[in-house]
Design a protein around this nucleic acid. Structure first.
Length: 134
DNA sequence: CTTCTAACA
DNA sequence: TGTTAGAA
């Protein structure tokens, strides 16, 4: 699907989508002969993942790290990507780094979520006050 | 009308 | 990130 539809489905601006593509955060899996970005369902899923991280305040670089780790862990799986006899020593190492990144970001996400909840509470208090005044 | 790139009140 | 110019 083209960028316009993706923007609607992900609630992300076309500007952001192009930006993410330039940064290599989420690039469309294909291009039309005319040069239009063509996204797949998988691309949209990745974009939705980005959307979920956004409110937690992760930097785009951090999101990129997360996606990369996810790909490393997902594609290689248990180093079943067709390794030759004895050639999986490195694969295990990459998987380990990826797993580490995932847990690091996971811990960071928990912290950021707590802060977000605290701020939400502040906002709710504000609205409470306003409602009483109205 | 939609998308693309590049650049900036 | 938004917006905008000019072209495809």
């Amino acid at each position: 699907m083209k960028i316009g539809e993706v923007a609607e489905r992900t609630a992300l601006s076309i500007r952001s989508l192009r930006h993410y593509d330039e940064l290599g955060l989420v690039s469309p899996s294909a291009h039309s002969p005319g040069g239009f970005r063509l996204y797949t369902e998988a691309d949209v899923e990745r974009l939705l993942l980005i959307r979920r991280m956004k409110p937690l305040g992760f930097s785009l670089d951090r999101m990129k790290d997360f996606c990369r780790a996810l790909d490393t862990l997902g594609a290689g799986g248990g180093s079943a990507g067709g390794d030759v006899a004895g050639g999986e020593g490195q694969g295990a190492r990459f998987d380990d780094d990826a797993a580490t990144t995932i847990s690091e970001i996971g811990a960071e996400a928990t912290e950021r979520l707590e802060r977000l909840r605290k701020h939400l509470a502040y906002a709710e208090e504000f609205v409470e006050i306003i409602d009483r005044l109205s």
